[in-house]
Design a protein around this nucleic acid. Sequence first.
RNA 1: GGGGGCGUAGCUCAGCUUGGUUAGAGCACUUGACUGUCACUCAAGAGGCCGCGGGUUCGAGCCCCGUCGCUCCCGCCA
Length: 592
Amino acid sequence: MFATSQRTHLCGALRAADAGTTVRIGGWVHRSRNLGGLVFLDVRDREGLVQVSFNPDWSSAAVIADAAGVGVESVVIVEGVVTPRPAEMRNANLATGDIEVRASAIRVVGPAVTPAIPVARGKNDALPAEDLRLRHRYLDLRRPELQANLVLRHRLLQATRRFLSDRGFLELETPILTKPTPEGARDYLVPSRVHPGEFYALPQSPQIYKQLFMCCGFDRYFQIARCFRDEDLRQDRQPEFTQIDIEASFIGRDDIMALSEDMVAALWREAGHEVATPFERMSYADAMERYGCDRPDLRYGLEVHDFTGAFRALDFGVTKSAIEAGGRVRGIRVPGGAAWSRKQVDELEALAKSAGAGGLLRVKKADGKLDGPVAKFLTPEAESALALADGDLALLVAAADRISSPALDRVRQECARRLNLVDEQARRFLWVTDFPMFEQDPATGALSAVHHPFTAANPEDMAAYPDAPARWRALAYDCVLNGLELGGGSIRTSDPRVQSRMFTLLGIGDEADQERRFGFLLEGLRAGAPPHGGIAFGFDRISMLLSSGTSLRDVIAFPKTTAARALFENAPSTVPSDDLRELHLRSTVEGE
RNA sequence: GGGGGCGUAGCUCAGCUUGGUUAGAGCACUUGACUGUCACUCAAGAGGCCGCGGGUUCGAGCCCCGUCGCUCCCGCCA
């Protein structure tokens, strides 16, 4: 399949079965070993590497001299005979280690300058600094690890297309030059040359377009969509990223979740893992109550418990004032935590504080007695509620839930890490459902959408609390694996009047304003919209997880730095002022 | 927008605590030796704006201020 007019085989594909075959291979010199009159080259291509040996018994003096002079990372075309290695010379660490290519000819077709960063590395060699790897990406991407990542990424893309296409989903494309959206993240803007002072935006997601496809009757849509958000970056966040974007008509939550489970299972199978379906489900309220987090890692316990009832009677300032202010006393029991030093627990408290808590209350049980600042205030009821076994440590936060939940989430994760409770092999998929529809600004009372403004509210909630939208739950769902969000979606509002009301609740009350910003969606809905909904999965993150990687940058061929800079091609960059003038732009940067 | 870490040879790092000879090591590179290696080995050599700018000092890789780059985190990311 890879044979061409210039080569017969891939280097990494040669095996003992090929013994005796005369081959011509092309590849990069991975490493060379010159023993004086006897030269070995490891020649690498995308399939792997093979040892090519040069020896006076089968190579001319000129060929040996050429082999001895070639630098690493140069491209060579080698002709020779695949030959089994004597038993003592086999290399079990190499897929091609049972054979070698005995070279009769070599041609250096792409001599290489000395590489700026090494491609071949020893077992314990550290990777070069990330900015150098990005600046010299043409070398970094030669590394077998990164090649394997991108090959897997390709297979996952194909598996996605196959799976969805087989289920009747149409791969439909949407514009990259779109309309700026006032909601959500900051847009990347593109100036219009022909319309002075006007701008396109790059899509944050194809959300509205895919809903319009449903209004058009395409019924099932998917796209492997590039999305753009101009926000500050993180290790797991790139300014442009890829989503598996899905939308379907005449469906409900369970349809989308079942479809997603099958797709996730298909992707994991592509990477060699079996995944059991259906996934567990948990309401947002439960997740927050038991884990303090809307995407809990279920690989370990350390669940959060409510001790408010047992602490209510305590004459202890911290808990008393928190309870009187309407807060609760919640916390986790840490088996073996009583052995931790004061300093170690102080570190946990610092974590809790960095998440917004005022402090972390500690009670430990060692040698049968309780210890800690609150210990002597504990009533027998409180003691039995805490239910500490010997060696246990309770870590409590007395505050409103919106304070204690994130704090306990951080503390819980750190305790699990310390106690080595995380089973790295385990895969705990989970659906988190029934998210709240709105988030309320504690200061102003203003509502904002938790998912996005097109999400449908639970109709029972709308009927039960027509005047309390803050109590409505959304028909939204997130797919979570081991504490990481893989994707999320919702059933959409398909009634234009309801959609208009949602905009009003979100502070976009003016009808003209609504039409100006979202008119093209509202028009589509008014023209007759089926019930519809969908989901989007973060494809880069899925690729990363299935490559066992920890950085998105290792599954993206040409990623940006955390300063949103492309070090390889050196973007962004300034442009000649004539180009700006043509776009009706003028720089406000000093000195320009 | 804010905070932490890092920046010394092509690469990975030491040196900085306590300022003071000619700034070191491993890998890579160059040259030489070596006929079965596979991170070959051995010998020799070359290679430095100590990120950049300013300050303190008789003297700064080292101390101080600023700045730039990378990175991690908070805000932000419907």
